[in-house]
Amino acid sequence: MAEQMAQQTNGRAHIILLGRNQDAANKIIASFPQTPVGTPAEEESKYSFIKVDATSMAQVREVTAKLSNELDKINFIVASAGYSTLKGRDESPEGIDRKIACTFYARFRFIHDLAPLVEKAAEKQEQTGIMSVFAAGRGSQIDLNDLGLVKGYSQTRAHDDMVTYTDAAFEVSLSVQSTAPSPANSDIAVFVGIRQPPPKHLLYQHIPWTGYYARRHEEYGCHVLCTSLTSL
Rank of each mutant, 00 (worst) to 15 (best):
L18H: 04
Q4F: 00
A122C: 03
T103K: 14
P116M: 05
E91S: 13
G82P: 04
E91M: 06
K27E: 06
L225C: 03
G193S: 07
P116C: 03
I15L: 12
L203S: 10
F104A: 04
L117G: 02
Q127V: 13
D167S: 11
F191M: 05
A54M: 12
P93R: 04
P36R: 02
A184I: 05
Q127S: 13
F32T: 06
S182K: 15
E218M: 04
M131E: 08
L202F: 09
P183C: 04
H112A: 12
L17N: 03
F76Y: 15
I207V: 15
S68D: 03
I111L: 03
M57H: 13
G152P: 01
G88N: 10
E42F: 12
P183F: 01
L114S: 01
R61V: 11
G152L: 02
K66I: 10
A6G: 05
A81K: 06
T103V: 14
T39F: 01
E119I: 14
G88P: 01
E91L: 04
S48K: 06
E43S: 11
C226T: 15
F108T: 09
P40F: 00
G139H: 06
M1D: 06
I50R: 08
G152S: 09
I188L: 06
Y212I: 14
L149E: 02
A101R: 06
L149R: 05
N185E: 12
N75Y: 01
L18F: 03
D97V: 11
K120V: 08
T64G: 02
A184Q: 10
N21R: 09
S175N: 11
Y204W: 11
K46Q: 02
Y83C: 05
E43P: 09
A106N: 15
E219Y: 14
L67F: 11
P93S: 08
Q4N: 08
Y220H: 15
H206G: 10
S132W: 06
R138K: 10
T103F: 08
L225Y: 01
A24V: 08
K51R: 12
L149A: 09
R195N: 14
D90K: 07
N145K: 07
E171W: 10
A122S: 12
T210R: 14
A25L: 01
D187L: 11
L144Q: 14
L232C: 09
S48P: 00
G38C: 07
I74K: 03
Q155E: 08
A79F: 00
S182L: 14
S182Q: 08
P183K: 05
Q127L: 12
A25G: 06
P208C: 11
L17F: 05
R20F: 03
Q4V: 09
Q141Y: 15
N21F: 04
N75E: 04
T128Y: 07
P40S: 02
S84L: 13
R215I: 15
I111V: 03
A81Q: 08
F104P: 03
Q34H: 06
G11Y: 00
V52A: 09
G82Q: 10
L147P: 08
A41V: 14
K120T: 15
S48R: 08
E123Q: 12
A121M: 13
D146S: 04
F108E: 02
D167G: 12
T64A: 02
G211Y: 10
V192I: 13
E219D: 12
I111D: 02
L71K: 03
G38T: 02
Q8W: 13
M1A: 10
C102W: 08
A65E: 15
